[in-house]
Design a protein around this nucleic acid. Structure first.
Lengths: 142, 142
DNA sequence: ATATGTGCAAAGGGTTTGCAGATAT
DNA sequence: ATATCTGCAAACCCTTTGCACATAT
């Protein structure tokens, strides 16, 4: 494979001491453009441009990238997990009608509430996962 | 099967207009005693007393009970989902070391924060899923 | 009596694995 | 040059399904 573009995906891969392959660049670019995506959709999208890219490679990379903290798994009730690039902690708003996921920054005031709460329970907090399910503005209009 | 005890599980089953079978009673009693449990553990536990109970029956019931809102699925990053009896909305504290899940009531002050936040985004909130990952007091001591 | 539920065994589908060949460094 | 990565195909679950029989109402 050829034509490796210079971009953010490459930087992320390098930062994590992984080899910069066209497959990985393609995977990250699609995840970035979608924001949140399932393995299945990711593979479908990848197949359009990289017909030889195998599903096994997608699985191996996604699992490994989650493992090393490059990606974050977002479990979605009822369907399969979606994956996103790791960034500052944020809240997810998931539409139960269209499945779209929107991010919202996690304000310090909220973070404080949960760190206090964890402290009360003698719980050493590592990660806060906040997911709000409901109808997005578009699906409400329907 | 015989020996149907009178208890909370039976009431739950009746309230949902399902037939009261020994299998369902056993399933609910184990979920209640564990608080949160995976399908696999549930089946293992069930097998101890009800040797003829099939895994297919467990799956059929759990899926159906989640569907009608008797049970709630709690996705756990890295492993399989656990299931719990539906009750007032609450926060989950999941230990990343031992996997134990503890509940904490969701205070109105927190609920208000998220309903406000959803409102800002023109999002019609249906369900708030808050999961805190970290180390429980026992695993910190190790 | 009848709708519902269970158990079995088979099918299904998503995920993982091993390995040989290819590629990035 | 060599450690890493990819693609293929098989293996491996976990989960679902269909159907005949059993059971709750």
């Amino acid at each position: 494979m050829k034509n490796i573009p210079q971009n953010k995906s490459i930087e992320i891969i390098k930062k994590n001491n992984l080899k910069v392959t066209p497959q990985r660049i393609a995977i990250l670019e699609i995840i970035e453009s979608y924001g949140h995506i399932t393995i299945e959709s990711l593979y479908q999208e990848l197949s359009l441009k990289h017909t030889s890219l195998s599903l096994a490679t997608v699985y191996k990379n996604i699992l490994m990238m989650v493992e090393i903290g490059m990606l974050l798994e977002v479990p979605v009730l009822g369907i399969k997990s979606k994956y996103e690039l790791k960034k500052e902690n944020h809240i997810h708003l998931i539409c139960t009608s269209c499945g779209n996921i929107e991010d919202k920054p996690l304000e310090p005031s909220i973070e404080n509430i949960f760190s206090d709460l964890a402290h009360q329970k003698d719980f050493k907090l590592q990660y806060e996962q906040i997911i709000l399910y409901g109808l997005c503005m578009f699906c409400q209009a329907k």
